[in-house]
Amino acid sequence: MVHRREIDGRAIVLGNQGDLWGNAMTWFDHDTGSVWSQPLGEAILGPLTGETFDLIPSTVLTWGGWRDRHPETVALDAPSQWSGFSLDQMAIVVEFGPDSMAFPVTDVREAGVANAVVGEVPVAVTVDPEGDSWTVLSRRLDGRTVELERNGDQLVEVGGDGRWDADRGLRIDGADDSLDLLPGFTSFPADYVTFFPEGFFWQRSGLVPAMP
C-alpha cells in the first residue's frame, strides 16, 4: 500500500508501532504517538483518532513488467529477496469512504476487466492476462459511464469506439478523454474480510458479501 503521509499540508513521520490489529501492522506518528491501522490508513488510538491518509495509486507486479512499461524508472537501492508471494493469491481492493469491494486477481484476469460500482463510483479493474500488472480506472467519461472490455493491452468501450491503454488509461488515438487512474491496493482475501466485513467480493457471476 502507498499512502500520502500528510495532514493539512504537513508531512507526517511514522514508525512501526510493533503491534498487530486484525493480524495487520500498526504505525505510530512521531508527533503525537497516535496508533494507525495499515489496512484502514486511519488513526485508531491516540490524539489523532479518526484522521486518515489518502491512498496513492500504485500497483504490484514483476520488476521486468514494470521496467518494460516504465523504462526510465528508478529502483530502490536494496538487495533482491524472494517475497514468497504471488499476485494470484491476492485481491485488488477498491475503497471509497465506507464502501469497498475486493476483486480476486484470478477472477479479474480471467474476465479481462471487472466493471463495477464502488461507493457510487463506476470503476474498471483490469489485470494483464499474460503478466502481473493491474490497474484501477474510473469509468466516468464526459458525464457518462462507459463499460469496458479488454483486448490485449487495450481497454475497449463496449458499444463505442473508445480505446485506452490498459496500464494508464490514456486514449490510444491521442484524444483528451483519458480514464482517470484510481487508488487500489492488494490484500489477501482473508485480511479483506477482517477489515472490511461490510464489503463485497466481485465475481463474474455477481457480488458476494465478505461476511455471508
Binding site: T62, W63, F85, S86
Partner: peptide, 11 residues
C-alpha cells in the same frame, strides 16, 4: 541487479 521476476510495488 534484481531478477525480472522480483515482485515490486510500482508508483
Amino acid at each position: 541487479a534484481w531478477p525480472d521476476d522480483e515482485l515490486i510495488i510500482g508508483v
